[in-house]
Design a protein around this nucleic acid. Structure first.
Lengths: 217, 217
DNA sequence: TGCCTGCCCATACCTTGGTATGGTCGCAGA
DNA sequence: TCTGCGACCATACCAAGGTATGGGCAGGCA
């Protein structure tokens, strides 16, 4: 948010497409299709197999047959959502119906392709999905960096931060939390340093992103 | 955003469901269904008819057969989007297919029901759509109030606002735009008054919402 | 026990922010 | 021509922000 940092320790890995389908022929076909445009691919014959695998950390997306051995595609989707595992999903189906597709799309699927599909449609969908994932990862990275800074604050400092970013003056903050103005100034200075904020405007934006800050009238 | 105002001059009108279907029987059935739970209804037999009518201003949504005389439902949807007319849409279809439903959902449809549908499914969809519309309207109202205030600023004042909300000190702003510090202070004061901001934090949030403000390193 | 940390406060001092008062200049419209 | 307004600047003054220095107290921990 405020500091522009190098990507991080892990090198910028290539996008990976995770394919889950019980049809080995289709898996192979998709694999060569994706590799032909420079994407990496990981193949799985079932959801369980995918869950057991160690997944790469770069940008990625999931290409999933809605009818799988064991867990259904839709159930798998909601299970992933519940477990906080956010990954863009592209569904494929041979015998799907409209309610199924609608449910999938409402739950956030990127696309829902009927077999047989055109290669280009699949590639477009995957490109869109990878893009979504990349954006989300960046947003998550920024916000977790921010959260990490916020976690270093003491209770007091959080109280002061909330009120300062709500627009209160030091003396008002002091009155509200029952401190002397000078103490508020000190805490405030600590907040600025710990949050690595270079200005009040900066801090306000951080508070906004973190969802802290006392609402105002 | 900053001031909590009464709803406005127009009284809080009841939610309205706009129904477009060429089947008069279905129109009537939907009409009584919606009225039974206290919603107002406006019926149309074609998209053209709806466009010609004067639409109410309260929260509302659109229930649309995908196959209509004249313009198709999907085309109508994209036409509305292009014309900036944002209204939540629920599609109905008797003979739709998956690609159609996916396209509609990707374009932002709230739901896509296959005929025959259960009354409760339709009511749930409409409730969700109305809710979305209400939220959107509130957001639009807030942001247009803000925009109106911003429009009263002079060019200079906007320059100063952008830099101040980016976290620059008055003297830095002065140097950047080639003014004396005292002049910056005066403009800054004018900005605060015109934007009705009660604190710098307030102004920063406004700048954020407006998308003005010079990005920082 | 000594050490660290969080929390609290004071005095002193300097920098910024913010407003009032008063004045100049140029331009557009009544 | 007068009026109003946007833009600009100065002096003066006060309020608010911010830091340094120094000190006290409580609790956890090696």
């Amino acid at each position: 948010m405020t500091s522009r940092q190098p990507p991080s320790a892990t090198p910028p890995s290539a996008p990976v497409v995770l394919v889950v389908d019980d049809d080995a022929g289709l898996r192979d076909a998709l694999s060569s299709l994706f590799r032909s445009i420079g994407l990496e691919v990981a193949l799985f014959s079932s959801a369980a197999e995918l869950l057991a695998a160690r997944l790469p950390d770069g940008p990625r997306c999931l290409v999933l047959d809605i009818r799988m051995p064991g867990l259904s595609g839709l159930d798998f989707q909601s299970q992933l959502a519940r477990s906080g595992m956010e990954i863009p999903i592209i569904f494929m189906t041979g015998h799907g119906d409209i309610p199924m597709s609608v449910r999938a799309m409402k739950a956030g699927a990127v696309d829902f392709l009927t077999k047989p599909f055109r290669d280009q449609d699949m590639l477009d969908a995957v490109a869109a999905a990878i893009d979504i994932d990349r954006t989300r990862r960046e947003a998550r990275a920024t916000s977790s960096r921010l959260r990490a800074l916020y976690d270093t604050l003491t209770e007091r400092e959080r109280q002061i931060m909330a009120r300062v970013t709500a627009g209160l003056m030091n003396k008002q903050v002091a009155a509200e939390v029952g401190l002397s103005e000078i103490t508020v100034k000190i805490h405030r200075g600590n907040v600025m340093r710990k949050m690595e904020a270079h200005s009040l405007a900066d801090l306000v934006r951080m508070a906004e992103a973190l969802g802290v800050s006392t609402a105002k009238g």
